[in-house]
């Protein structure tokens, strides 16, 4: 036989795995909707960029990862953090700039990291993640620990030199690296149909000698299936893969973005394409889960998110003494 055909059928997702996936997507959605509300009150310092609408991507990819694996994220990183298992209480506190935050309140939305979970960090540098995961993937390859590293990046970052150099490096070193291009149609306010020279970002994979595929970013099952193949390929020494995930972000580039550059495409996405709605229809239609089970998850997540906001607001801010800690130079 020739080719790289997967002989065994992909393991069907168990009901528990489906519930976990739904819980992750629902947690991301509720987290982002709540941050959207809280940001408007002025209590959150700095910028926030929300991931609502894109949940199936982070969830579909990260559901294949474990603690051997690492991800690098973007300025729009909350969803990646949650999908990789970063504690939601710590994340909310971090966004509020509190001492109980994931990074002791010093990073804020764009720098949430938790190395214990393999989350190398949200990243304010567009195209900053791909070089990081090449390093992490090289480490896994040299150690032989079976780890895979994943970089999430946007359509804007797909034009950055750092991203293109990383694709090349991952290919020549045959790294267990996966590049997930999250194409939500706009780099800030610039349409990707104008700024990306190829028809699709996935086209660029051929130039770097790796497979490039496109999946429907609203469909958890499509992302999950493609990511599963890419992760298995990387773990088996098959090298890197580029996956382009196409979808729409529900909010602006940042909170406060007037969004004058796009028409009313969000309403159609929310009504007809939404990943949570599609997922619910699929799993209840197939008889794998019931509406009651999913409703219960909704309630549990809503309670957890509400609690995270209460705790974040009540937590102390870093003090003057904290200025000299968690830095590379010892001032003691």
């Amino acid at each position: 036989m020739t080719g790289t055909l997967t002989q065994a059928p992909a393991a069907e997702l168990t009901p528990d795995a489906l519930l976990d996936a739904y819980r992750t997507m629902r947690t991301i959605r509720d987290f982002e909707e709540r941050v959207h509300e809280e940001f408007a009150t002025g209590d959150i310092p700095g910028f926030v960029h929300l991931y609502a609408g894109e949940e199936a991507s982070a969830t579909g990819v990260c559901s294949h990862l474990d603690l051997r694996d690492a991800i690098a994220s973007t300025h729009r990183g909350h969803g990646h953090c949650i999908a990789k298992g970063v504690d939601v209480m710590g994340m909310m506190a971090e966004i509020f700039g509190k001492l109980t935050g994931s990074c002791r309140g010093k990073g804020g939305s764009m720098h949430i990291a938790d190395l214990s979970k393999g989350m190398l960090g949200a990243n304010g540098i567009v195209g900053g993640g791909p070089p990081l995961i090449c390093g992490r993937a090289l480490a896994s390859k040299l150690k032989g620990d079976g780890g895979v590293a994943v970089a999430f990046f946007g359509d804007g970052a797909s034009n950055q030199g750092t991203t293109l150099e990383s694709l090349n490096l991952a290919s020549i070193w045959n790294l267990p690296a996966i590049f997930v291009a999250e194409n939500n149609g706009y780099a800030e306010a610039t349409s990707s149909t104008w700024s990306v020279a190829t028809d699709d970002i996935a086209d660029r994979a051929a130039a770097f000698g790796m497979p490039g595929v496109i999946v429907d970013g609203f469909d958890f099952f499509a992302v999950h299936e493609a990511a599963g193949e890419a992760v298995a390929r990387a773990r088996e020494g098959g090298g890197p893969t580029l996956i382009e995930v196409k979808f729409t972000r529900y909010f602006g580039h940042f909170e406060g973005d007037q969004q004058l550059y796009r028409a009313d495409e969000v309403r159609n996405a929310r009504e007809n394409l939404d990943c949570l709605k599609v997922f619910r229809a699929r799993v209840t239609g197939s008889g794998q889960l019931t509406d009651d089970q999913l409703d219960q998850v909704d309630q549990e997540v809503a309670t957890a998110i509400a609690a995270s906001v209460v705790a974040a607001k009540a937590a102390p801010k870093p003090g003057a003494d904290d200025l000299l800690t968690d830095v590379y130079v010892s001032y003691q």
Binding site: G3, T4, L5, T6, D200, A202, D203, A205, P211, G212, V213, I214, V215, E225, A226, E229, A230, R233, T241, I243, E244
Partner: peptide
Amino acid sequence: RDIRRLVAQ
């Protein structure tokens, strides 16, 4: 550009 570029050639 579907998954056959990943699972096949």
